[in-house]
Amino acid sequence: MKKILIIDDDEQILSLLVRSVEVAGFAAFAAVNGREGQRLLDKQPFELVITDLIMPEKEGMETISYIRKHFPETKIIAISGGGRIGPETYLPAALELGADLAFAKPFSIDDLIVAIRKLLDIQ
């Protein structure tokens, strides 16, 4: 079973994403910020990471850079509702840092699952 790490400081979004990924047939692991996500990454491999960009205690941009440096084969989906300046600024930067895909919140769970399957080459 493919393992997916989901990192988001919004507990409702984190819970929704974990449940949705599990229903789609993946093993989901949750972290409430980039620091916690990094600890999980260092303990076990993940095929894919979904990370919010604006979080306390290690933002998504730092997390993406860390993953690209230490786990280059791991696929990354960046998600963001933006901060003070909106997701249209953060998401392109996340792609430049190495995210494979980026979604602006709110997004369709169905679209996210399709993207996960495509990135993991699952039909």
Rank of each mutant, 00 (worst) to 15 (best):
D52T: 02
T74S: 11
I76T: 00
G60D: 04
I7P: 05
E11G: 00
L16H: 00
Q44C: 06
L91F: 06
F71T: 04
S15Y: 07
S20R: 06
V32W: 00
A31K: 01
A30W: 07
E47K: 11
Q38P: 00
R19S: 15
L40F: 05
I79R: 02
L5S: 07
N33S: 05
P45T: 14
P72K: 00
D52W: 02
I76C: 07
I6E: 02
E73W: 00
T63Q: 03
M55D: 06
L48M: 09
S80L: 08
G34V: 08
R68I: 06
G34C: 15
R35L: 15
I13S: 13
Y66W: 11
R68P: 10
Q12P: 00
A78N: 12
L91T: 09
E22Q: 15
A30I: 11
E11L: 07
K43H: 06
L5I: 03
I64K: 10
E47W: 03
R68G: 03
I13T: 15
F26E: 13
S65L: 12
T74A: 10
R35D: 13
M61Y: 05
I6D: 01
A24I: 03
S65M: 08
F26Q: 10
R35G: 05
V32Y: 08
E47S: 15
E36A: 15
E11A: 09
E73M: 05
